Amino acid sequence: MIDIVKAVQGADPSLGTYVIVLRSDSRALDGSEKLSAEAQSWLAANAPGGRLARVKIQLAPYPGAGPAERDVTVMAFAEARELAAFATHWTGDPMEDE
């Protein structure tokens, strides 16, 4: 995962230091290129410095392989606190109410 983040930061330095790469099946996404309405509302209330981006990177699919071009969906944040809150809320599996 660290290699992907470094590749993203190298491909688009304007995203800053606090980035997280989202899987295509992320609950926060409504398709690969936009956030769900719920995620947009959550960001506005909890991480207003967050933004979604698509970035083209070069990444080896496994150690020792040649790099291949890949598009990834990235959330970039203004502060580490915002990234941590987003990751806690949106990247884990939702817990069922007991």
Rank of each mutant, 00 (worst) to 15 (best):
Phe77Trp: 07
Glu98Arg: 02
Arg70Ser: 14
Glu98Pro: 12
Arg51Tyr: 08
Pro48Trp: 07
Lys34Met: 10
Gln40Cys: 01
Ala53Ile: 03
Arg81Pro: 00
Trp42Asn: 02
Ala39Lys: 00
Ala68His: 12
Gln9Lys: 15
Ser41Arg: 00
Ala60Gln: 14
Glu69Ile: 02
Ala53Met: 00
Val72His: 03
Ala60Asp: 07
Met95Lys: 06
Pro67Asn: 14
Lys56Met: 15
Ser32Asp: 14
Asp25Lys: 04
Asn46Asp: 06
Val19Glu: 13
Ser36Ala: 12
Pro67Thr: 13
Ser36Met: 01
Arg23Pro: 05
Glu79Thr: 14
Ile2Phe: 04
Glu69Pro: 15
Met75Asp: 02
Leu83Glu: 08
Gly49Cys: 04
His89Lys: 13
Pro94Glu: 14
Ala76Asn: 10
Phe77Val: 09
Ser36Gln: 06
Asp93Ile: 12
Ser14Gln: 07
Ala11Glu: 03
Ala80Leu: 13
Ser36His: 05
Trp42Met: 06
Thr73Leu: 00
Ala7Val: 02
Ser14Asp: 12
Asp25Ile: 01
Pro94Arg: 10
Leu83Val: 01
Glu98Leu: 11
Ala65Phe: 04
Ala78Tyr: 09
Ser24Phe: 14
Val72Phe: 05
Ala44Leu: 07
Thr17Pro: 14
Pro63Asp: 07
Asp3Thr: 03
Ala37Gln: 12
Asp3Trp: 04
Ala45Val: 08
Ala85Asp: 05
Gln58Phe: 15
Ala76Arg: 09
Glu98Cys: 04
Gly10Leu: 06
Val5Cys: 09
Ala76Gly: 13
Tyr62Ile: 02
Ala53Cys: 06
Tyr18Asp: 01
Ala84Ile: 05
Arg51Ala: 02
Gly64Arg: 08
Thr73Gly: 01
Glu38Cys: 03
Gly10Tyr: 09
Lys6Trp: 06
Gly92Pro: 09
Val8Gln: 00
Ser24Val: 09
Ser36Phe: 02
Ala78Arg: 13
Arg23Gln: 13
Ile57Leu: 10
Ser32Asn: 12
